[in-house]
Write a protein that binds this DNA or RNA. Sequence first.
DNA 1: CTCTCCGAC
DNA 2: GGGTCGGAGAG
Length: 642
Amino acid sequence: MSEPTDSSDPVKTSRFTYRQLQGLRHGSTATPLRVVAHIDLDAFYAQCEMVRLGTSRETPLAVRQWDSLIAINYAARPFGITRLISVAEARKLCPGLVLQHVATFREGEGGRWAYRDDSFRNISTEKVSLDPYRAQSRKILQTMKEALATWGVDNTGDETQRPKQEAAAGLEKASIDEVFIDLSPLVYKTLLQRYPELQSGTQDENRDADLPIPPTTALQWDTDCLVDLDKHEAEEDDPDWDDVAMLIGSEIVRSVRNAVWDKLSYTCSAGLGRNKMIAKLGSACNKPNLQTVVRNRAVQNFLGGYKFTQIRMLGGKLGDQITSSFGTEKVSELLNVPLEQLRTKLDDHTASWLYGIIRGDDRSEVNPRTQIKSMLSAKSFRPSINSLDQADKWLHIFAADIYGRLVEDGVLENRRRPRVITLHHRTTQFRSRQIPIPKSTTIDEAMLFDLAKTLLRQIVADGQAWPCSNLSLSVSSFEEGVSNNRAIEGFLVRGDQAKALSHVARPRATDNITNEQPPAEKKRRLDGNKIRQFFGNPSDDAVGEAQGTPQSHIGTISEEVDIPQYTCPRCSTSVSEYEKEEHDDWHFAKDLAQQDREQSRSSQPVPPPKTNPRGATPRGRGGRGGGSRGKPEKGQMRLAFQ
DNA sequence: CTCTCCGAC
DNA sequence: GGGTCGGAGAG
């Protein structure tokens, strides 16, 4: 301001340096120019059912699980329907409400889930399946990824639609209906395209020189919801590069949301900010179908209005402990507590983390979707079950459920495989037993069931197994497969077909392989043969050569040969038209996994608060007061990667 | 490994 | 508030 306002070119410079601009390029978590987005599907389970059933956006709809509501769409909310009320109350409040029960597995039907009109009466014989929502989640993620990949290559007159694989934004699937995206690399690219003057300084040595001031004096925020600026900031002030970066990020997010709507008819809400914490809080501010931008100049004002218990990682006991230690839930009041004082009640690591987080400082990375680490299938029993017979039936369903998901994860191709299987059992207490999954055997449904059965009998032998109120089966300790056969990976096999496959081939696969070294090569060949036989794929040279497989082994399942074939443009694999969609899904999953493998090396764990002293808080469910801690909304759902 | 706890949705 | 997850620490 002390500068003379020369009417010629201003000497005024940006608050940011070339070094900070460069930080954008490789996803530095420290640069103040960083742009992170959080995108959240609106009432996700409800939207899935709206799309599946083809109901209009104006039709009130709720998703039912037994006698509870687990998701309520936005058309139904004005009627006062919440997740807490009963089905009968909901009907009374809104006679036109569409109530759709979640899909279920049913005893004796293996891994096939289905939507059934009478599920709500069969809580004792059915188990919820989230597979339909997982499938939709995958498609949505794929669409988002494609939108990001094509950002900026659309209107360039370059008609050759090159995939443009570079500069793919880091995309972290945070749950079944949420993603984080670090937009920094894309923003960087766009910034240099739009403002060529920024390129000049990127090569020379003077990285700490200030950037020139942005040429624009007013930014067009379109339909974004802008969080009000901090006290001493004014909208009239000229924007700096962090504002411009945020605007570009906002355009990218809008294009992603538009793609999801145009292609799949899902609406979502988004938050944009300098880091994950800000973005996450922002996405919940304006729902449904809106995006909220928290500029750096607005962070203080934004955070100051929150209870810190709404910040990620502070929603549980740690948040409670902090609340009681310092006598407030408000961020604005906790800001007055000096670091030293935080340290008197919290361990150093937690204190430092907390001190920064309430000031908007969150350097956690957007982790390209980490590989799944465990899978669990569970059922609570009301009333309890009382016999091995009953329990075994559930173990069958658990095994089928988990097997289906393992297939999606690539067990058949030997890409990944769990090492351990665990059975949890609850009477008055919880107990669990686990055993290794034998290596060198093909994992299939029957094998999982046998292992589960063994575990259950161990638990029963320990005594006091009945009545049982909860049972769950999980697999964990995944390891990367040795196999990386690209040709085989080009196939997709899953569900019943996969099951049929494994059952056919299992006797040989399991009986012939010794317990010694797992013959990975041999196993891979078996898998390859099975897959090819199933699809009746007439030619795959890579596989054929590598394995020296006689062509006569191919195409032996005759009932498949008449199905119209689809040739995948990516892997030149032929699958039935019927399987095309799932094949595409499979590619998507594979891409994500590849992305994980490539990027997991370079990413560091978040600085999560250290564990708090166990003895300091009462055990059990006593820690929290009545459920009145208000999560504003966000009705449902669940789950994650994958 | 087993058991327990946390946090999220 | 419960069902359904994923993850990690203590011993």
